[in-house]
């Protein structure tokens, strides 16, 4: 997308942003019919997107697409509670996907996963990453962990359900790397289209929608969390609610995971570890 177009979309008033998002959702239904599902993390963005999709479905009188919740093995109970509550209230069927093969071998974060004990599928996926160690610690947000615990279950889900598209709730302003994304962005392995209707919402817009339309949200945001990931790797950013924080000056993802490898390297150079 042209930079000027992105700027234009960013500067739209909230109601027009919502209308634009609904247009994308309608177009997605036209193009992909029933071969599209919606990912729902329980976070503020995807809950807002689920609400928008539901609004379009009711207007068009079509069934809600399957929604997909990824259990990467370290879910905040507060997120679990939000999903249960909202899926009942909004009557949204949720399919939980997880990498059972890995989860059966571990109990807690950091438990060792022996590659030899994994099934063929997971071992093949590790080969694709060129991962050659005999074991790794279970951490859903490490490079290896993210792939096995999130990417692989979604991949299987897409293949098994014969999907050609997936709604996701990413936004351009989350980080610079996302600026190359479009409302419809094709992906490989497996081949499908990511439909991203709220790309042009800013963090502030999301909270404005949540408050204006009284959408439910995970209570962790009230405790100062700004962005939610795996429990072991996510911290609150401040002790005031997310929506009262200084969006311009405190990055949304500040409370998310650290670069462990780089930190260890620095410590080693000073004789620690």
């Amino acid at each position: 997308m042209e930079d000027s177009e992105r700027q234009r979309l960013w500067s739209l008033p909230l109601e027009e942003k919502l209308a634009q998002a609904e247009e994308v959702i309608v177009e997605a239904f036209d193009r992909f019919g029933r071969e599209i599902a919606a990912t729902w993390t329980g976070g503020k963005d995807s809950t807002t997107l689920i609400w928008l999709i539901r609004r379009v479905c009711r207007r068009l009188d079509r069934p809600f697409p399957i929604s997909l919740f990824i259990d990467e093995g370290d879910i905040f109970p507060e997120i679990q509670a939000l999903i249960e509550k909202v899926s009942q209230k909004w009557e949204i069927p949720v399919e939980v996907v997880r990498n059972d093969n890995v989860l059966r071998l571990v109990k807690d974060i950091g438990d060792p996963v022996k590659v030899a004990e994994l099934n063929d599928l997971n071992r093949r996926e590790l080969d694709l990453l060129e991962f050659a160690e005999p074991e790794f610690p279970f951490e859903p947000e490490s490079y290896v962990g993210n792939h096995l615990m999130k990417t692989v279950p979604v991949k299987l889900f897409i293949e098994q359900k014969g999907l050609t598209a997936l709604f996701t709730a990413i936004r351009w302003d989350e980080h610079d790397a996302r600026e190359s994304e479009d409302f419809f962005s094709p992906r490989e392995d497996p081949s499908h289209v990511r439909v991203q209707p709220i790309l042009h919402f800013r963090e502030r817009d999301i909270w404005d929608v949540i408050h204006t339309y009284k959408l439910p949200f995970c209570e962790l945001y009230a405790q100062g969390y700004r962005s939610l990931g795996a429990r072991y790797n996510t911290r609150p950013v401040d002790d005031i609610p997310a929506w009262e924080q200084d969006f311009d000056n405190i990055p949304e993802r500040l409370g998310r995971g650290q670069n462990k490898e780089q930190i260890m390297e620095q410590l080693r150079n000073l004789g620690y570890m």
Binding site: D108, I109, G110, D111, P137, R235, P236, V237, G255, Q258, K260, I263, M264, L267, Y272, M273
Partner: peptide, 15 residues
């Protein structure tokens, strides 16, 4: 570094 109940190293955050 800190050690977790699972013998994994973690790095304390400022927060």
């Amino acid at each position: 570094t800190d050690i977790t109940a699972k013998y994994q190293l973690r790095f304390p955050f400022f927060a």
